[in-house]
C-alpha cells in the first residue's frame, strides 16, 4: 500500500512531465522565415527573368547589338537607350543582354563540364582507393595550389581567343572542389554496411559505384555544379576583362566592363555600372537558389545555422 502511493502520484504527475516544454529555440521567427522565402523568391524571379531574357531577346528583338552609331556615342540613359550608349554609340542594354548570354552560357557549360569531371574523378578516387586515390588527390592538390585565375590564364593562352578556350579554362580550374566533395562522400559511403551487403551479393566494383555510390552523391555534386555557375561567370568576365578571354567584338560582360574603363575616367558611369549589375545580380540570384537547395538537402547544417 505504501509503495503504491508514490506510483500513483508519479502517474498522476506524468502529464505534466509530458507537456510541451516552453522552449522556443527550434522555431525561427516569422521575420527570418519571410526573409528566407523572400530571398528564395527574389532569386527565383531574377534567375527566371535572366534566363528568359537571354533566350528570348536575341531571336525576338530584331536589333543589331553591333550597330555602330557614332553620332549617338556615350549618350546618357534615356528612353531610347535605357542603359545609354557606349563609346561607339552601341546600345548598352542590348549589349548587356548579349553579354549575359555569352557569360551565362560559358558559366553553365563550364560548371556542367567541371561537375561531370569532378564527379568522375572523385568517385573513381574514392571507390578504387589505393594508389589511384593517392595519385588523383595529389593532382588535385597540385592544381589547387596554383591560383586558379593564373591557371586559367595559362590555359587560355595556349589557344586562340574564342568561347571554347575560355570554357575549357574555366572548366579545367573548377572541377577540383567537386572532386574533393564527391571523394569524401564516396569514402564515407564505401564503408557502410549496404556496400558489404552488395559485395556479398556478387556486385562488381563498377556495379557498386554505379548503383549505390554515384546516385548517393549526385545531390551534392549537382549542388556543387550550381554553386560553381556564378563562380564560372565571374571567371569568364575576369578573363575577358584582362583581354585574354573572348575576342573584343563579342559582347561579353567582361569585355563590356573592360571597354568602359576609359569612359569611366571621363565621368561616364553607365557603361561600367550596367554590365557590372548584369554580372552581380544573376550570380547572386543563382547563388541564392543554390543556397536554398543546400539548406534543403542538408537539414543538419540548417539546424546549426538556426542555433
Amino acid at each position: 500500500m505504501t509503495c503504491e502511493r508514490p506510483e500513483t502520484s508519479a502517474t498522476g504527475g506524468r502529464p505534466d512531465v509530458l507537456a510541451p516544454l516552453p522552449v522556443a529555440w527550434r522555431s525561427h521567427g516569422p521575420r527570418q522565415r519571410s526573409w528566407r522565402t523572400l530571398r528564395v523568391r527574389t532569386s527565383a524571379v531574377l534567375t527566371a527573368a535572366v534566363v528568359l531574357a537571354v533566350l528570348l531577346v536575341p531571336p525576338l528583338v530584331q536589333l543589331d547589338q553591333q550597330a555602330v552609331d557614332l553620332a549617338a556615342k556615350l549618350r546618357q540613359p534615356s528612353w531610347s537607350h535605357p542603359f545609354g550608349t557606349d563609346d561607339v554609340g552601341r546600345d548598352l542594354l542590348l549589349r548587356c543582354v548579349y553579354g549575359l548570354r555569352v557569360s551565362l552560357f560559358v558559366g553553365v557549360a563550364a560548371a556542367l563540364v567541371a561537375a561531370v569531371v569532378g564527379t568522375a574523378v572523385g568517385a573513381l578516387a574514392g571507390a578504387l582507393g589505393g594508389w589511384v586515390d593517392r595519385v588523383a588527390m595529389r593532382v588535385v592538390d597540385a592544381l589547387a595550389s596554383v591560383p586558379h585565375l593564373l591557371l586559367g590564364v595559362f590555359v587560355v593562352a595556349l589557344f586562340r581567343p574564342g568561347v571554347w578556350p575560355v570554357l575549357l579554362s574555366v572548366a579545367a580550374t573548377h572541377w577540383l572542389s567537386t572532386a574533393r566533395i564527391v571523394r569524401a562522400e564516396v569514402l564515407s559511403l564505401r564503408g557502410r554496411p549496404f556496400v558489404d551487403a552488395a559485395i556479398s551479393g556478387g556486385a562488381s566494383r563498377w556495379r557498386i559505384a554505379v548503383r549505390h555510390l554515384v546516385p548517393a552523391v549526385l545531390p551534392q555534386a549537382g549542388l556543387a555544379a550550381v554553386l560553381s555557375v556564378p563562380h564560372a561567370m565571374w571567371h569568364e568576365s575576369a578573363l575577358s576583362f584582362l583581354g585574354l578571354g573572348l575576342p573584343a567584338h563579342m559582347a561579353s560582360l567582361g569585355n563590356l566592363i573592360e571597354g568602359a574603363r576609359g569612359s569611366l575616367l571621363a565621368g561616364q558611369w553607365w557603361p561600367t555600372l550596367f554590365p557590372g549589375l548584369f554580372l552581380i545580380v544573376p550570380t547572386l540570384a543563382v547563388a541564392g537558389l543554390a543556397g536554398a537547395w543546400r539548406d534543403r538537402i542538408d537539414p543538419r547544417r540548417r539546424s546549426e545555422l538556426m542555433l
Binding site: 557502410r192 554496411p193 549496404f194 558489404d196 551487403a197 552488395a198 556479398s200 548503383r211 549505390h212 548517393a216
Partner: peptide
C-alpha cells in the same frame, strides 16, 4: 548470405 545487425544501414 549475410544478414547484418542494423537493417537501416544495410539497405541502400
Amino acid at each position: 548470405g549475410v544478414v547484418l545487425q542494423q537493417p537501416r544501414l544495410a539497405a541502400d
